[in-house]
Amino acid sequence: MSKKIVHYINQFFAGVGGEEKADIKPELKEGVIGPGMALNTALKGEGEIVATIICGDSYFNENVEEAKATILEMIKKYNPDLFIAGPAFNAGRYGVACGTIANAVQEELDIPVLTGMYIENPGADMFKKSLYIVETGNSAAAMRTAVPAMANLALKILKGEAIGSPEEDKYIARGIRKNYFAKERGSKRAVDMLMKKLKGEEFKTEYPMPDFDRVEPNPAVKDLTKAKIALVTSGGIVPKKNPDRIESSSASKYGKYDISGFNDLAEADHETAHGGYDPVYANIDPDRVLPVDVLRDLEKEGVIGELHKYFYTTVGNGTSVGNSKAFATEFAKELKADGVDAVILTST
């Protein structure tokens, strides 16, 4: 008999709609929808998706507790053998939703779970320790490689087979150490590694150091009334018509724009270039993302010293960590040189 699987996908992969539908509440559909079809085929009759749960990415992330409770109830009545979420690729809100719900199903319903996403998806960092997350490419174009990898791991879980190493079974390392018998003793392996290192050859460590990239908080601003405050956003606010053509996703650049002539951002002069959220509200009033109006008021009232002449902006939608780091490293130097005392960074 084939094992029962419940599948979770977002509004986009369900074909309900794009960002304008990102606020839909969880819905339960019998059978298989969207990427579930390919998964079903790859499971070769040994597992079958019996129901699909669809939820809008914004709804899930803005109403985590309600969404979680509703979805857990939906899953309960099927009592599946496995729960699969995604794959979410590099879609941030989708990845966080997949990780959050999969984690809840595992913890609260005690049902095995599986998801898939790109290594830079914020959901990966949040949940890689507790979940099997198959490592996928960064866009839905990678579906063809994601499906077989997820099906492979799904079958192993369903059959109760031993799960291999992250490399073997293509999931993101969970930081679990397993004992095994190596062919050679540790001292020999260590010397071999050292020899390779001395020769400048490539070698593979057996214990990669975890990457704790934390930055200590700076001291607080002492006197706001004398402080120069700058605005930065990943929400894609740009002057009307996006003069530098910042991309709507996977941005390769940032913009620096003069706001000294503006007391208030409006539909006529600014808009958002961001392709990862419904742009309607930000386009009607860009202050909803970049609060220039309020900061001008506070400047006039003397609450803050001044609002910096320029704001910096990019589109934080599938934009690589590498690019974002490079952008901010560059403009942070300018902010420093311009005597900015503090930054307010807004994200959508």
């Binding site: 992330n61 803005e62 941030g92 809100r93 966080v96 914020p122 960092d125 949040m126 990239d213 934390r214 930055v215 200590e216 908080p217 700076n218 001291p219 607080a220 601003v221 930065v232 990943s234 990019t314 934080g316 974002s324 780091k325 952008f327 901010a328 490293t329 942070a332 130097k333 902010l335 420093k336 900015v340 005392d341 503090a342 930054v343 307010i344 960074l345 807004t346 994200s347 959508t348």
Partner: peptide, 27 residues
């Protein structure tokens, strides 16, 4: 971006809707 601004020595506040992402990023 938050982290690079902080690293440059400027105090920064992150206003965002999905707080867990901000925590993961390191604001």
């Amino acid at each position: 971006m938050v982290k690079e601004i902080e690293r440059a020595g400027i105090p920064v506040v992150h206003i965002c809707t999905v707080v867990p992402i901000s925590l993961t990023v390191g604001a």
